[in-house]
Design a protein around this nucleic acid. Structure first.
Length: 98
DNA sequence: AATATGACGACTA
DNA sequence: GTAGTCGCCATAT
């Protein structure tokens, strides 16, 4: 299982799709949820198949949204009512799925 | 086979 | 709070 298996991809995408609006999850959280590889591979899955899921609800462990799409993620998150800290970091304390 | 890179995370200065 | 570094695993060259 060196390459990104469909099974792994489906597992990650399924979890992301289960994240409701106004909530977020982290790469590391997803990586532990699937119990395989590492947070980087989760990011790889997003880069490859993230176009099929609300990728903007997947943020870093620090609460910062994905660095891609030039900051489009922040706008989407704010529009969904995600709690922000300092106006640019997601309040994981409240928005993180648990 | 070796090196560099990445939609990451954690640690240290 | 910011910057630098290392560790992690898979991919590209």
């Amino acid at each position: 299982m060196t390459a990104v298996d469909e099974e792994y991809v489906e597992a990650v995408l399924a979890l992301v799709e289960q994240v409701p609006p106004g909530r977020v999850t982290t790469y590391g959280d997803l990586a532990r949820a699937v119990g395989s590889a590492g947070p980087r591979q989760v990011g790889r899955v997003m880069a490859l198949h993230g176009d099929a899921v609300p990728w903007w609800r997947v943020v870093h462990a620090d609460g910062r949204p994905a660095t891609c799409h030039g900051g489009t993620a922040v706008d989407r998150l704010r529009a969904e009512g995600v709690a922000f800290v300092d106006g640019r970091r997601v309040d994981l304390t409240a928005a993180r799925v648990g």
